[in-house]
Design a protein around this nucleic acid. Structure first.
Lengths: 211, 211
DNA sequence: GACGTTAGAGACACCGAGTGCCACCGGCAA
DNA sequence: TTGCCGGTGGCACTCGGTGTCTCTAACGTC
């Protein structure tokens, strides 16, 4: 991630920096993503056209697609990097810790955002969990996450990644994580890590009290 | 519905084939859905245009949309009815059975298809779980299911439907059910009910052996 | 300083999904 | 006949997404 040339910023930089609408620097992609997030938050995903985003980002429709691929992609930032990080965390987990706790730990750590990034994260997740079109698109992204987790569980258990248990662990933990995100987003209280740990706790215990 | 004139062939007779399970007469919507399923299975979801489906169904593009709403909808059949059935099963569950088993039971029963319907179900589910566009769309449908389950759990537990526990039970049980569908579809062995019960069993026990 | 090369950008044309509108056609009641 | 009405087809339009062409600015190299 070391940017070479002085003021050069790699194409996929997340905001983190204040840097509001107008001023320059930040790469075309970052500018597009910022404009998109701004407009989606204000008017709703469906209401905003690519043309508008491009205009606000100071570029053209065609260039928008060259950088972000699709309208939905504008919201997700560097999600591939996020998935890769989760995979790396799982790979780094020792065999001394049990499978389920390892997955839980990786999730919590992969979602340990810096305080400064939380506002952007909130805006992103609010859109993803709220707007039907983005909610739909999310399934495709989640599939990548599930794949990573299933592969890990499969390796640890000596099963095929497509077997029931690995797939089951992957999809249910991810469902739990998403739900934790959801309630964290709804209420202003508590940290994301707390919400994740509570959800994972329930899952690991098989919902005691409901059986 | 009932086409009247004796030898009159309604504008939409499917191909030359005498029509499969659908027994022939069956309303415009049914004809459209059959044509769509046929074409999607043969050429893939993205490769088929609405125009083609309409042509095979013997109707027009415009009428297609009047009946099914969207391209993805053509695959889902009467899913709203399915969700309603799940809701009814949950409502009918007595308070003597614990919450989790009640949810499991409702899922199993709601997915207890007649032997004759299995081939169509398989084709449907294969598309939904395989084609990215349909996979994406599925999330929106699943949200309805989650809503129903969350409401039930909330009522039983005296919590808000948006609280963590109800949401968590809803999303994880649904994830488990979907995964069960997935492996049932992949392997030719075993019944759907079996797969569901195995998945739910794992979930209820908190994945023993992985903790 | 003139040259060719190349990456990024805009302009344009095209496709397909989805929607609104209007016109038509058949049946049905007054 | 007249008028209503539900189902339908045709048409035009918007918008997301893609392929293609051209332009331009930057960067060497001679």
């Amino acid at each position: 991630m070391s940017s070479s040339s002085a003021a050069d910023v790699p194409p996929g930089t997340l905001s983190a920096v204040p840097l509001r609408v107008g001023d320059g620097r930040g790469g075309t992609r970052a500018r597009i993503e910022r404009a998109a997030l701004e407009l989606f938050g204000a008017q709703g995903f469906e209401q905003v056209t690519i043309e508008e985003i491009a205009a606000v980002a100071g570029t053209s429709r065609r260039t928008f697609f060259r950088h972000v691929g699709s309208k939905a992609d504008a919201v997700w930032g560097d999600f591939a990097g996020h998935v890769a990080r989760l995979a790396a965390l799982l790979d780094a987990a020792g065999d001394d810790v049990a499978v389920l706790p390892a997955v839980f730990g990786a999730y919590v750590e992969a979602n340990d955002y810096a305080e400064a990034d939380l506002p952007v994260l909130r805006r992103r997740m609010r859109l993803i969990l709220t707007e039907p079109a983005l909610q739909a698109h999310s399934q495709v992204r989640y599939a990548d996450v599930d794949e990573v987790v299933a592969r890990y569980v499969a390796r640890r258990c000596g099963q095929a990644p497509s077997a029931l248990l690995p797939r089951l662990v992957a999809t249910t933990t991810r469902a739990a994580a998403t739900t934790a995100f959801e309630v964290w987003l709804a209420g202003e209280d508590g940290s994301l890590a707390e919400a994740l740990r509570t959800a994972f706790g329930q899952l690991a215990e098989g919902f005691p009290g409901l059986r």
